[in-house]
Design a protein around this nucleic acid. Structure first.
Lengths: 254, 254
DNA sequence: TAGTGGTCTAGACCACGAC
DNA sequence: TCGTGGTCTAGACCACTAC
């Protein structure tokens, strides 16, 4: 049992655990502890966490504090809570990808997960741009993947990925699945927890246009995505050139 | 005093207020009540709500339930909570627009609110597309505004707006400010609470290209935004054609 | 000093799911 | 039947703001 914090009577809490500065509320400390354990692989995606009562007892806080931490994590899509069953580490299944990470939806009809066709895969010394995006030291190596993704059999986008070789050893020798985030999680224990996308409209370069089967110069949506792990480290840089005749990028301003 | 629900002892709550079906939890009923009051103009943007204790007493629920309702509303950017001061109805000031509704950020440098130059304004019978987007009856009238928006003096985008004339009487006779959402709020008591944007890459049509000072056919980002009021009614349809040489559209996947 | 929201605790009942 | 998370209540202390 790891009693990281105390819990005495109602309201009788000392000035949040004797530190003079950057003090965090208890529920956030609990949240950070739980995320740390997920990073360390204590619970794998899809597995249940201990119950609120068990976590509260172990961490020496009240059930309400654990609840607030878990509610926050559920809002961040890090865990899934189900009444009567328990709290589970979120998995990178197709539903989550479609809901959280894949914002391209058909102009008509239901959302679908696109198929993939790998064009190339290999390692190289990271470019300056890659070092900047992924916060790598100069001279680091990266894995590069290039692939076409298709929706309903039609080419939708060309995608260029860069990943730190140090984090994904042996990736170039693997079968590249359609759902990459599932692979990162299953083979490397790395969870892409959030991402930041920058969008621009550009004229499709000749090489990409050929893969997509359109004339060079066709207007296309350039999506520049940086994916961050549970502990906020950039782990994947993905640049996609996307045709938007049959689909659009959906953004909810909430 | 409007006692919409009872509050007796701890835990002694009847099967959520005797209705057989679509039952909502108490805190959500409280939230809906407060939103209804905001729609009715009981509290204007920028004004403080009553304290948690006062609301709890008036509504006949515990402070914790009011707190949960207000926390949810704060997460939706409907209210702003400040320790020691109170809870305030969110205003459509430039900071909120920049944070919540204006996703175009310079490739380098800080975010800025763009200037505007109105090209035309007038009323017309709503097109089929406008009726569909704004859920209007055929034959309804709309206000149309067309304007150019500039960042650092340079044309950034051309914007075409459609609004139900019934909701915005006299709008065509007004001075059109830079911050339209502030006007909707101040003059018509209508708050744009959330929006849905669809993005595509297109070739700039000749007319728009001329306004933007680029050759026709230049790739541009087409942003199709539908804005919804506090009570989920579509109140504004806005289509923007945007150059993305100096800026990009920022989307956080959380 | 008084009042506000922020945090933390404790304990009750409920709806749901597995058994 | 039991254990889970979901809701609701009650009451304590704290940090911050205004006066």
């Amino acid at each position: 049992m790891t009693k990281s914090v105390v819990g005495t009577g109602p309201g009788s809490r000392p000035p949040p655990e004797g530190d003079g500065l950057g003090m965090k509320p208890l529920y956030r400390q609990v949240r950070d502890t739980l995320i740390r354990r997920m990073v360390d692989g204590v619970w794998a995606p899809g597995e249940p966490l201990p119950s609120e009562m068990q976590l509260a007892a172990e961490l020496g806080v009240s059930q309400g504090t654990v609840r607030k931490a878990l509610d926050e994590m559920a809002a961040e899509n890090l865990v899934v809570r189900r009444q009567g069953r328990g709290t589970f580490v979120a998995r990178h299944d197709e539903d989550r990808i479609l809901f959280q990470f894949f914002k391209l939806v058909p102009n008509e009809g239901p959302r679908h997960f696109p198929d993939s066709r790998v064009l190339s895969i290999g390692k190289a010394k990271a470019s300056a741009a890659e070092c900047g995006a992924l916060s790598l030291a100069r001279g680091s190596r990266v894995v590069r993947i290039r692939r076409v993704r298709l929706l309903a059999g039609l080419p939708l986008l060309v995608e260029s990925l860069s990943l730190p070789d140090a984090l994904f050893p042996g990736l170039t020798d693997m079968e590249i699945p359609n759902n990459l985030y599932g692979l990162y999680s299953a083979r490397y224990g790395i969870t892409v927890a959030r991402a930041r996308e920058k969008l621009r409209a550009v004229a499709a370069p000749e090489e990409d246009a050929a893969e997509l089967g359109v004339p060079p110069g066709t207007p296309a949506l350039l999506i520049d995505r940086l994916g961050f792990s549970l502990d906020q480290v950039p782990v994947e840089w993905r640049v996609s050139l996307c045709l938007t005749h049959q689909v659009h990028y959906l953004s909810d301003l909430t």
